[in-house]
Design a protein around this nucleic acid. Structure first.
Lengths: 120, 120
DNA sequence: GATAGGAGTTACCTAAAGGAAAGCGGTTCC
DNA sequence: GGAACCGCTTTCCTTTAGGTAACTCCTATC
């Protein structure tokens, strides 16, 4: 009867714990642009206007706002280089590596879903 | 996190394809409650008021609205049983299995992030 | 001196998300 | 007959997200 941990049936506690974790994650990541911005910067560090061009459709207001939010949440780092004029480079933080799995699964799902929609 | 599988350098095309996929996924899944509802139903099929109790904080209006959205996107199935009175049971569709990886990574990230926040 | 970036900010506006409260038609239970 | 539960809907409201356009400062370049 006693089963090993990995094959044990999922308990109610685990269910609601997962639920809480997903809700917590969404509290930080929710919105149209946060994850795309992080992904764009994981692909390569970029300057403000480069991100704008990469994520076509985003406005400078929203980009500035979301970059601040992501900085506060330690997912993005804003580097200022003392060139003349100063150049500012945004990059994904080391901590944002923890989001890679999320981004990969989400990307996979998005690709599969698009395929499904087209087929119908 | 076993990942090493012949990592060819990522091309620009792959980057923007991933970006597009993530944006597509968010177009369908964005919002405060969609993923939590799906997760709750993956955990076990439920009736309307059971979902309400599971996801404390959601209003009946939003739940009804999101259930319709998820039904239209084939992620949730609404079953009507001809009991007296009719009982209605919502369940995660077979297709919603494709979201399990997304939900798991998101749940993991949310749990880790909460831990990080608390530690600081 | 005009123009063209870069990196935003500001003001204004619309639409969508989300919440509170009440109600409603049905049924069972007391 | 009254209370309670189910599965919602309706109305009203506030908040947030997001978009547009204009404008700023600073520097480099023609």
């Amino acid at each position: 009867m006693a089963k090993t941990k990995e094959t044990a049936p999922i308990t109610k506690e685990e269910c609601s714990s997962n639920l809480r974790s997903v809700i917590d994650a969404l509290y930080v990541l929710n919105g149209k642009w946060k994850l795309p911005i992080v992904l764009s910067l994981i692909n390569s560090p970029k300057r403000f206007n480069e991100i704008m061009r990469d994520l076509e459709g985003i406005s400078p207001k929203i980009l500035a706002q979301e970059l601040k939010h992501l900085e506060q949440n330690k997912l993005v780092v804003r580097n200022v280089f003392p060139t003349t004029p100063v150049s500012i480079m945004y990059e994904a933080s080391a901590y944002s590596d923890t989001l890679k799995d999320v981004l990969r699964t989400l990307s996979d799902w998005g690709a599969g879903h698009r395929k499904k929609i087209i087929e119908e």
